[in-house]
């Protein structure tokens, strides 16, 4: 017997992701999925960002790693709340893991939810977590050819942070190539040079976060009043 179906294999994950998104909307929090290769500077970015936001914008962090709670420990004293998810063998987070973390978190009291995905430029791009925005970090030492080599995450990006820009002179690096490769995939995502060491790009990054928050809350207010 042949049974014909049309079944999206990722439907189960996508449904949970949609529920997460709804929870974020109801709580008025902006959820950001941070994606990069291992070691591109996700946790360092969070350390600096949480320090800059502290007081004004309490922020929650969910960190995914194969093993250890080191990254959670690094941000613990600056975050409003932190959850570490150990994914074991899995090279990416699932919507379900985020959903299971939410009951313990006080979303309504925070402005931003940063989800640090497992270090990997391929697999996290395939799994919607329910985030509002995807931020991709690409560090200078990785080389200037990575946008074209890992196109899927860059096509889906809302912002690309070119991290460790302080190391630019130490590498043979063609910034124009990164820009032109990105513009073959993504018309809108800004490409923002950033350094946690020198502070370059920090102001623009914080400005972008505030703009995104205002845009989201504005859109929500319009939606409610309509």
């Amino acid at each position: 017997m042949k049974i014909n179906v049309v079944k999206n294999v990722l439907k189960a994950n996508d449904l949970v992701a949609e529920k997460n998104r709804q929870a974020f909307r109801e709580a008025g929090i902006l959820a950001i999925n941070l994606i990069s290769s291992p070691g591109s500077g996700k946790t360092t970015l969070l350390e600096k960002t949480l320090a800059a936001l502290s007081g004004r914008d309490p922020s929650i962090v969910i960190v995914g790693d194969l093993q250890t709670s080191r990254d959670a420990e690094r941000v613990a004293d600056r975050a409003f709340q932190v959850t570490q998810i150990n994914t074991g063998m899995s090279c990416h987070l699932y919507a379900n893991q985020i959903a299971s973390s939410l009951p313990a978190l006080d979303l309504e009291q925070a402005s931003f939810l940063f989800i640090e995905n497992v270090g990997n430029l391929v697999c996290p791009g395939e799994f919607d977590l329910g985030e509002n925005l995807k931020v991709i970090l690409l560090s200078i030492p990785e080389g200037d050819d990575k946008v074209a080599k890992y196109p899927t995450v860059f096509r889906a990006a809302d912002l690309v942070l070119l991290t460790k820009i302080d190391l630019l002179d130490a590498f043979q690096y063609d910034l124009k190539r990164v820009e032109s490769d990105l513009r073959k995939l993504n018309a809108v995502a800004p490409l923002l040079p950033f350094s946690a060491t020198t502070g370059a790009g920090m102001e623009d990054w914080l400005k972008w976060l505030q703009q995104q928050k205002a845009a989201k809350l504005g859109a929500q207010a319009r939606f409610i009043s309509e």
Binding site: K2, I3, N4, N8, V9, L10, R183, N186
Partner: peptide, 17 residues
């Protein structure tokens, strides 16, 4: 630049025997 993908990013179970 086109941001519309019509097909090619799907993963669909289409039949079982």
């Amino acid at each position: 630049l086109s941001m519309i993908t019509l097909q090619g990013d799907e993963l669909i179970l289409s039949s079982l025997t």
